[in-house]
Design a protein around this nucleic acid. Structure first.
Length: 220
DNA sequence: GCGACAG
DNA sequence: ATCTTGTCGC
């Protein structure tokens, strides 16, 4: 698939902030997804002391969650890890991998935040705006926001709030395990995002999509 | 100025 | 993310 090149990736943090502030206006928070037959998971791994980025994309059928196609892309790492700027470090290699797949996904679940971000433009939003494919942010830990205590049962969730705003949901994808931080990426509402994440976690805490992409990205 | 801080 | 073995618990 082809992905539009909206900007350079060789940036200072000040320039990155300007891009986030500009592109967040293109993020769609409502549902505009069609029939979902394929869901992709994307994840990153690093080699050579972090100098090489390894992106993995796994396209699974939905709702049966069977691996249909996968791709891996290696690329020199050019941006450091700075909380709030994850997309500038990971998306270049992810795009390389996405460009080689033939099964265009109807939905992408990202390993990181969507609008649950200081400027409401986490990696899931960024990838969504660039590809114009519906995306969901499903992170393993918190970036920003506060929430009430969460019940232990799978399926229970609490709104994640930041400055009077609901920016996502803290979701128990598996009973008695640490929750997932789910937020809107692009073209998917929060209730729909929660629903897809639950339907992609029939057995483990992490979505099957990211679990498979994770294995591909880590060489083992 | 002091902490918090996706992967 | 990555460095790393065994071990506790359902």
């Amino acid at each position: 698939m082809q992905i539009r090149q909206l900007h350079s990736w060789q940036l200072t943090t000040a320039e990155a902030i300007a891009i986030q502030e500009q592109l967040k206006a293109e993020v769609a928070t409502e549902d505009t997804l069609g029939t979902v037959n394929y869901i992709a998971g994307v994840d990153m791994g690093f080699e050579a002391a972090g100098t090489i980025s390894r992106a993995a994309v796994a396209v699974l059928s939905f709702p049966d969650l069977q691996l249909i196609e996968s791709a891996i892309a290696l690329r020199r790492t050019t941006f450091p890890y700075i909380p709030g700027f994850l997309s500038f470090r990971e998306i270049p290699a992810v795009i390389d991998a996405l460009e080689t797949i033939s099964t265009v996904p109807d939905l992408i679940i990202c390993d990181g935040q969507g609008i649950a971000h200081p400027r409401r433009f986490g990696i899931a939003c960024h990838l969504g705006v660039l590809t114009d494919i519906p995306t969901i942010g499903a992170a393993k830990s918190l970036l920003i926001g506060k929430h009430e205590e969460l019940a232990a049962a799978r399926g229970s969730w609490q709104p994640l709030k930041h400055r009077q705003e609901i920016i996502g949901a803290v979701l128990r994808s598996r009973t008695a395990t640490k929750p997932l931080y789910v937020s809107v990426g692009h073209r998917v509402s929060l209730p729909t995002a929660i629903d897809y994440v639950l339907r992609c976690t029939p057995k483990y805490r992490l979505p099957e999509t990211t679990r498979i992409a994770d294995k591909l990205a880590s060489n083992r």
